[in-house]
């Protein structure tokens, strides 16, 4: 059930308004994803003081600066690794990672698959716009085949990643995908990810109108978003883990949700048990002497 709290939610109370106007291009889908995230945070009533947002490099990486929380803009590809340290050291914090397709799947690909495997409680929001926007429009691991970018002047001839399939195959206990066209559904998906007691990977299909769209003559932002929507189908139609590469009809919604021990809690439990064992054996020895 989609809770309609839209009228009560004021995004400005979660933004650093002194940072406005933001730097995103007109038509960019990242702002919609940011709004959906903050809406989910609002609905869950998360304490801003206990919210930590770690982001990498690229257009998506810049979003953390706009959020009124504990925000960390780190090195390219590494936000999941920084977030792993932060979340392990501070289990009282709610740690969210904002990353892009290049940041997460190319330079940070190793960290993604191991974060999926480890299952530490983190919410990873990967904003996929199929391109390296900030550096001027180079091909990324999610650029569709035949697309033109500044480094594929002949059209992209590499197959692209299906990030959700990859994350699920690597063991992520929560995987979901949504488009920016469906804002309430996107908010609902992020909310489910934030509530998930393990590693949650969420791919948001965003759009880069200004660079990618222009280069490939994809029309206005609205036209790009509508085209994305036409390529989607709800997850109920099909099992997601049947191909390592992106198919032309993408399932959306929650694609994977499994119960697995959360890494941080499992580690703390094992450590506490070890301390108890040692304390008991020390007491025993005391009894002897």
């Amino acid at each position: 059930m989609i809770v309609d709290s839209a009228s009560a939610f004021d995004v400005r109370t979660y933004l650093r308004q002194e940072m406005m106007p933001h730097f995103l291009c007109p038509g960019c889908g990242h702002g919609i994803a940011l709004r959906a995230l903050l809406w989910a945070v609002y609905e869950l009533g998360l304490d801003k003081d206990k919210l930590a947002v770690v982001s990498g490099i690229g257009c998506a990486g810049r979003l953390s600066a706009y959020i009124d929380a504990n925000t960390f803009h780190v090195t390219h590809g590494r936000p999941l690794a920084y977030a792993t340290g932060l979340a392990l050291a501070r289990p009282d914090l709610h740690v969210v990672v904002i990353t892009g397709d290049g940041d997460c799947l190319a330079i940070g690909g190793n960290h993604l698959i191991h974060a999926c495997r480890r299952n530490l409680k983190l919410t990873c929001l990967m904003l996929n716009n199929e391109v390296y926007g900030m550096t001027g429009g180079q091909v990324s691991p999610t650029t569709s085949e035949t697309r033109l970018t500044t480094t594929t002047p002949l059209g992209n001839s590499e197959p692209n990643f299906d990030a959700c399939t990859l994350a699920a195959a690597a063991g992520a206990s929560f995987v979901g995908r949504e488009v920016t066209h469906h804002v309430p559904k996107l908010k609902q998906l992020i909310r489910a990810g934030l509530e998930h007691p393990g590693f949650a990977f969420i791919e948001v299909l965003s759009d880069c109108t200004e660079i990618f769209g222009r280069k490939n003559e994809l029309g206005s932002s609205a036209e790009m978003v509508l085209r994305q929507k036409s390529e989607l189908r709800p997850s109920a139609y099909r099992d997601t883990v049947d191909s390592p590469f992106r198919s032309s009809d993408l399932p959306t919604g929650i694609l994977t949700k499994t119960e697995r021990p959360e890494y941080g809690a499992a580690y703390r439990t094992a450590a506490a048990a070890q301390r108890a064992r040692l304390a008991a054996s020390t007491d025993q020895n005391k009894g002897r002497t």
Binding site: F72, V74, T75, A81, A83, G85, A89, N110, I113, L278
Partner: peptide, 26 residues
């Protein structure tokens, strides 16, 4: 683990220093 600390073996050298800085940020 005996002093309520955390040890983690990361996936690579870069992740290790990144996690250390992340923990220190905390």
């Amino acid at each position: 683990p005996l002093v309520d600390g955390v040890f983690v073996q990361m996936e690579d050298e870069i992740a290790s220093i990144a996690a250390v800085i992340g923990a220190s940020m905390g």
